[in-house]
Computed example of a mutant assay.
Amino acid sequence: MSSSSKSLINLVSVNTAPDRAKKVIGAVIENVKDRYNIVHAGNTTTIEGVKPLLKSIQPAPGILFCASMWTPEQQQEIQKIARDTIPGIKTHGIPTGLQVQVGPEGIVQYLMERIDEIMEQK
């Protein structure tokens, strides 16, 4: 259907509401399954948990999403930890407060509008 690579991509999230993360990311994965083979491989609820989570998943995660409850500074720290732990990992921080403004469906829509751009990160 598409010329995009369909190799398995492990995605991790950093979200203090793991059930919501699973639901939102599950909806995004379902919506892009014709283009990408993404699996939600894990979630951590703390910044301190980012590095151990990334190291515990094989094959190594290819994407990390930061949820919108983190401040911009926390998101930068989380994404730096991810890039230092797994060089080349794609990261994306959902704008702080967006979940409160638009709800889970709005987050799914936000990610759907950006997934190709996220996947093409270098």
Results as ranks from 00 to 15, higher is better:
residue 3 S to M: 14
residue 57 I to F: 00
residue 58 Q to D: 12
residue 87 P to F: 05
residue 2 S to P: 01
residue 87 P to C: 05
residue 42 G to Y: 05
residue 2 S to M: 04
residue 28 V to C: 04
residue 44 T to A: 03
residue 47 I to V: 15
residue 68 S to C: 07
residue 102 V to S: 05
residue 27 A to T: 01
residue 36 Y to C: 05
residue 42 G to I: 03
residue 16 T to D: 15
residue 49 G to M: 07
residue 17 A to C: 11
residue 30 E to Y: 02
residue 57 I to D: 04
residue 56 S to I: 08
residue 11 L to E: 00
residue 122 K to A: 11
residue 57 I to C: 02
residue 78 I to T: 07
residue 23 K to M: 08
residue 37 N to T: 10
residue 54 L to V: 08
residue 92 H to M: 04
residue 93 G to N: 09
residue 53 L to Y: 02
residue 67 A to W: 14
residue 105 E to F: 02
residue 91 T to D: 06
residue 67 A to V: 00
residue 111 L to R: 04
residue 35 R to Y: 15
residue 30 E to H: 05
residue 7 S to P: 00
residue 114 R to T: 05
residue 111 L to K: 04
residue 34 D to I: 03
residue 114 R to V: 04
residue 62 G to R: 06
residue 122 K to C: 02
residue 69 M to F: 13
residue 18 P to R: 04
residue 27 A to I: 00
residue 1 M to Y: 09
residue 12 V to G: 02
residue 49 G to K: 05
residue 87 P to M: 10
residue 44 T to H: 07
residue 80 K to Q: 11
residue 100 V to H: 09
residue 59 P to Q: 12
residue 108 V to I: 10
residue 79 Q to A: 01
residue 24 V to D: 11
residue 73 E to K: 13
residue 14 V to A: 09
residue 87 P to S: 10
residue 14 V to E: 14
residue 31 N to H: 12
residue 121 Q to E: 15
residue 117 E to G: 08
residue 85 T to A: 12
residue 118 I to C: 08
residue 1 M to E: 07
residue 41 A to G: 07
residue 103 G to V: 05
residue 31 N to W: 01
residue 109 Q to H: 13
residue 121 Q to H: 08
residue 37 N to M: 04
residue 114 R to Y: 08
residue 41 A to L: 06
residue 52 P to C: 11
residue 57 I to K: 03
residue 101 Q to E: 15
residue 36 Y to W: 11
residue 26 G to M: 03
residue 65 F to M: 14
residue 44 T to W: 06
residue 87 P to H: 10
residue 53 L to E: 06
residue 12 V to E: 03
residue 113 E to R: 12
residue 6 K to M: 14
residue 51 K to H: 02
residue 79 Q to I: 05
residue 98 L to Q: 07
residue 25 I to R: 00
residue 94 I to Q: 11
residue 114 R to G: 03
residue 21 A to N: 12
residue 100 V to L: 08
residue 121 Q to R: 06
residue 101 Q to V: 07
residue 63 I to W: 08
residue 26 G to C: 06
residue 109 Q to L: 12
residue 62 G to Y: 05
residue 107 I to D: 08
residue 93 G to P: 08
residue 59 P to T: 02
residue 39 V to R: 14
residue 99 Q to G: 05
residue 49 G to L: 03
residue 97 G to P: 05
residue 46 T to Y: 06
residue 23 K to H: 03
residue 51 K to A: 13
residue 82 A to I: 08
residue 9 I to L: 12
residue 26 G to Q: 12
residue 21 A to T: 06
residue 91 T to Q: 10
residue 12 V to Q: 06
residue 27 A to C: 11
residue 111 L to W: 02
residue 98 L to M: 13
residue 36 Y to F: 15
residue 76 Q to C: 01
residue 67 A to T: 06
residue 118 I to L: 10
residue 57 I to Q: 00
residue 100 V to Q: 14
residue 47 I to N: 09
residue 103 G to M: 03
residue 82 A to W: 07
residue 93 G to M: 02
residue 112 M to R: 11
residue 62 G to W: 06
residue 51 K to L: 07
residue 99 Q to A: 07
residue 28 V to F: 01
residue 20 R to T: 09
residue 14 V to C: 15
residue 98 L to E: 03
residue 29 I to P: 06
residue 10 N to A: 02
residue 86 I to F: 09
residue 20 R to S: 14
residue 30 E to F: 10
residue 114 R to C: 01
residue 30 E to P: 00
residue 4 S to V: 02
residue 45 T to V: 15
residue 120 E to K: 15
residue 89 I to Q: 10
residue 74 Q to K: 10
residue 26 G to S: 11
residue 72 P to F: 09
residue 58 Q to R: 13
residue 64 L to G: 02
